[in-house]
Design a protein around this nucleic acid. Structure first.
Lengths: 225, 225
DNA sequence: CTGCATCCGCTTCGATACTG
DNA sequence: CAGTATCGAAGCGGATGCAG
C-alpha cells in the first residue's frame, strides 16, 4: 500500500497493517503460530500471492517472524513478534465495535470455530482488565464448533479463550454452529437456534450467568441509536 | 471494498471501516464535526471522489450522519453517529500501537497540529481509564502547532485534548512544529529540537512530570525487541 | 466558493496455473 | 507444502469539469 505520509501514529500504524487482509492475517497469528497452508485455509478467499506478499511485508516491518521448524516436520512457521503481539488490544477493540454487526447471523458467510476465540475476547473483558470482585463467575467451558475446539476460562478478572484439543475436560461442553454458539455466548434472548450446552447444574448456572453478563458491557447497542 | 464474508466481528468491522482512507476520515471526525472541504484539507492526498464515496458509504453504514447547516453558512456538516463515536477506543489503541513508528521523526511527511490531539490520546491514558491517585499531575496546556490550537487538560484520571481557539488561556503554552511538540510530549530525552514551553515554575514542573510519565506506559518500546 | 462527478493512467487485487 | 508467475478486473490518484 502506498504510504499516507502523515506524521501521525494512526496513519503510520495503518501504513504497516492497513492493507486489505493484513489485520486478518494478524488475527490468525494472535490465536497462535501457523504454517502458510494453515493461514491459507483460515482465510477463505485470499489469493495465495497476496498471503505471501502480506507475510513478507509484515516480516520486513517487524510484526511477524518466521522460522524453519526442525527436521522432521520441515515447515516454515509464522509467529508474531513481541511488537506484533501488542496488536491484540487494538484488534480486539475493533472486533468489540463490530459486535453489533453479528446480530444479522452468519448467512452465507464463511464460518470458523477458531474465530469464536476472537469473538469471546470481544464479548467479555480480558483477564486483568477488570478489578477484583466483579460479577464474572469462574467457569471453564469447552466449545466445539466447525471442527475446532476452544477452551473458555473465566474468573472475576476476565475471560480467556484459546484453541485446545478435542477431548479437553471442562465443566461445561458447548456444541453447535458458530452462529448458535455466538448467540448463546452473547446472551441473545431473541428467536433463533442456540447451542447445545451440557454440564452439571451448578456449572450451568455459572455459565449462563457469564453469558448474561455479556449484555451488560454496553456492546450490543442498536446501531440506529 | 469487497466484503470478507466472514462470520467474525473483526472482519465485519473491517467491511465497514477497512477501506483505504476510511479510518482517517473517522479520525478527523473524532476531533469534531467537519465540512467536506475541511476534511479534504485535513487528508492530504485523498482524491475528492474517494472522500465523497467514503462519506456516502459511512453514512449508509450508520457511522456518519450529515446535516445541512442553517441558512447563513449553507454547508453540509458531517459528524459521527453515536455508534461512530465508539470507534474512538479502537482507533486510539491502534495509534498507541503505532507510537514507536513516530520516533523516526516527521521527515517529508505531512503534518497537522490537530493530529497531535490524537497523539496525546495515544501517549497518555484517557480520562476515566486510570483509577484515582495515579501519579498524573493536574495541568492545563495550550499547544500551538502548524496553525492549529489544542487545549490539553490532565488530572489524576487521565489526559484529554481538544481543538481550541488561538487565545485560550492555560497554565503552560507549548509552541513548535508537530515533530518538536511530539518529542517534548513523549518525554523523549535523546537529541533533537524540542518545543518552546512557557509558564510559571510550578506549572512547568507539573507539565514536565506529565511528559515524563508518557515513557512509563510501556509504549516507546524498541520495535526490534 | 463548496461539494461533488467524470475521465484516465497506474497500481493492486483475485483467480488460476504452475514450480522447487 | 510453500510459495511464484501471469493476466483480466477492480480500485486508487490526480486532473478537470460543473452545478448549486
Amino acid at each position: 500500500m502506498k504510504s499516507y505520509s502523515e506524521f501521525c501514529s494512526l496513519s503510520r500504524a495503518l501504513d504497516v497493517i492497513g492493507d486489505r487482509w493484513t489485520m486478518l492475517v494478524v488475527r490468525e497469528l494472535l490465536v497462535g503460530p501457523s504454517r502458510y497452508s494453515d493461514l491459507h485455509k483460515a482465510l477463505p478467499g485470499i489469493a495465495t500471492n497476496l498471503l505471501a506478499s502480506r507475510l513478507r511485508t509484515l516480516e520486513e516491518a517487524g510484526v511477524v517472524a518466521s522460522t524453519d521448524a526442525p527436521a522432521p516436520v520441515s515447515a516454515r512457521v509464522y509467529a508474531l513478534t513481541e511488537w506484533g503481539q501488542k496488536l491484540r488490544r487494538p484488534l480486539v477493540e475493533l472486533a468489540r465495535w463490530g459486535v453489533p454487526l453479528m446480530s444479522t447471523g452468519a448467512g452465507e458467510d464463511h464460518s470458523r470455530g477458531r474465530w469464536l476465540a476472537f469473538a469471546i475476547m470481544a464479548l467479555f473483558p480480558e483477564p486483568g482488565a477488570t478489578q477484583e470482585s466483579s460479577d464474572i463467575p469462574a467457569v471453564t467451558a469447552r466449545i466445539d464448533a466447525e471442527g475446532d475446539n476452544l477452551l473458555l476460562v473465566s474468573d472475576p478478572t476476565g475471560v480467556h479463550a484459546s484453541m485446545t484439543s478435542a477431548g479437553e475436560p471442562a465443566e461445561v461442553i458447548v456444541k453447535g454452529s458458530s452462529e448458535e454458539i455466538f448467540r448463546t455466548l452473547s446472551g441473545d434472548r431473541t428467536e433463533g437456534a442456540h447451542a447445545h450446552v451440557t454440564g452439571d447444574a451448578d456449572a450451568l448456572r455459572r455459565f449462563f450467568a457469564l453469558t448474561s453478563s455479556a449484555l451488560t458491557f454496553d456492546r450490543l447497542v442498536d446501531r440506529s441509536t
